[in-house]
Design a protein around this nucleic acid. Structure first.
Length: 386
RNA sequence: UCCCCGGUAGCUCAGCCGGUAGAGCAGGUGGCUGUUAACCACUUGGUCGGGGGUUCGAGUCCCUCCCGGGGAGCCA
């Protein structure tokens, strides 16, 4: 390596010997010395990592993973590996993938013609997990503070730039935390990981600012120092109704917030992350703690500009009788939840937690607009190549 | 899954009212060159996403399927 006389570079290599390990036919090699579309590069996911954008993206992803563990480990959380194969067939988070070792061309049948799952590997229907939350709760009641960080699966036929069939989720769960503690942790967590990436991936973030999304660096620096906005679902609906805007779907108490509503709140009203709390009971899952008004639950969604919902969490229902009632109200069979209900029979305590999609966070950090570009090998309906 | 837009050379695209295809880049050859997504000249390269239909004739019009993008729903 010697000083370079050329402009724009401080040093250059003075090569003594060159050994070619593997050649690449230039007529067949798909990567060129020019900008390629992300759609094209996605078709060659095994080669796109050699490009500058994806090199930067996956360095940031690595730093984010490190930041996640660092944040929780520094705060005495215990890392729990929850199961990937599960028998809970309705955790309330969407369609699931079946896991089976049965011969699909010759399925065993019971006398009434239904599939005889007793002959399957686990002796009953099993699925890929959609969430480790329920299992994480059991460990939170043993260790006080835990977190999961692993893959989750959704068999939804979602075709959007924000959904994957296989994605990585972070789910902290804390005993003795109420919703306010939960929100505090979520905000601290987001700021910590942002600061970590700002500090360790400066060059890559500059690259994203220049080539992908010019607001990304400024937004991150701003968010790392700002205080998140808070408002209740009820106030959010009121604010939307009073906004003097024409909506495709009119905001109305009892209906879930639409994407256009969430974007309006985070991008136009507050221009920073917003935490919306206390959603109507009837549009949220059974495990969220019912408020004293009996109409709302202790839920919270963190909405960020550009990405939308990045975190969903709640204080959990810790009262056995209320939880059982809610499971039944939701039309679920309580029997598979016997162990979950046991947590409320044997030393129940208030506890809370949230789920954060790693890829959503990646989109926020990099400014990349398609979730398929922030995971090495994206799985989406009709696509499981590589 | 629903709505909208798209699929033409390896890549990015043009192709008008239907008359059987072009550019830039890449590749090849030669030249030039302290280059940075170099420059000059020449040049190879196409089942126009698949199938069906209308027509004397379809990249172009119609039907259908597949794939991609955007929006919506589901959510993280």
């Amino acid at each position: 390596m010697v000083a370079s006389p050329a402009a724009g570079q401080p040093v250059e290599l003075k090569v003594a010997e060159v050994h070619v390990y593997g050649t690449a036919d230039p007529a067949a090699y798909p990567l060129q010395k020019k900008g390629h579309s992300f759609e094209f590069l996605r078709e060659i996911s095994h080669l796109r990592v050699r490009s500058n954008t994806f090199g930067a993206a996956f360095r940031v992803r690595n730093a984010l993973a490190h930041a996640i563990h660092t944040f929780f480990q520094e705060r005495d959380f215990v890392y729990v590996q929850t199961p990937i194969i599960t028998t809970s067939d309705c955790e309330g988070a969407g369609a699931m993938f079946h896991v089976t070792s049965l011969n699909l061309r010759d399925l065993p049948r019971s006398p009434d013609g239904a599939i005889d799952w007793q002959q399957d590997f686990f002796g009953r229907p099993t699925y890929l997990t959609v969430s480790g939350q329920l299992e994480a709760e059991t460990y939170a009641l043993g260790f006080t503070k835990v977190y999961t960080f692993g893959p989750t699966f959704r068999a939804e036929n979602s075709n959007t730039p924000r959904h994957l069939a296989e994605f990585w989720m972070i789910e902290p769960e804390m005993a003795f935390y109420d919703l306010e503690d939960n929100m505090r942790l979520a905000e601290e967590f987001l700021k910590f990981t942002i600061r970590y990436v700002l500090e360790h991936c400066r060059e890559d973030l500059e690259f994203f600012k220049e080539r992908v999304e010019k607001t990304v660096l400024g937004t991150l620096e701003h968010v790392a120092e700002s205080t998140f906005a808070h408002l209740s679902y009820t106030d959010a609906v009121k604010a939307l109704q009073d906004a003097g805007k024409t909506w495709e779907f009119a905001p109305e108490w009892g209906h879930d917030l639409q994407t256009e509503h969430e974007r309006f709140l985070s991008e136009e009203v507050f221009k920073k992350p917003v935490i919306v709390t206390d959603y109507p009971r009837d549009i949220k899952p059974f495990y969220m703690r019912v408020n004293d008004d009996n109409r709302t639950v202790r839920a919270m969604d963190v909405l960020v500009p550009r990405v939308g919902e990045i975190i969903g969490g709640s204080q959990r229902e810790d009262r056995h009788d209320v939880l059982l009632k809610r499971i039944r109200e939701s039309g679920l069979d309580e029997r598979p939840y016997w162990w979950y209900l046991d947590l409320r029979r044997f030393g129940s305590v208030p506890h809370s937690g949230f789920g954060l999609g790693m890829e959503r966070m990646m989109m926020y950090l990099t400014g990349l607009k398609n979730i398929r570009d922030v995971i090495p090998f994206p799985r989406t309906p009709g696509n499981a190549d590589f």
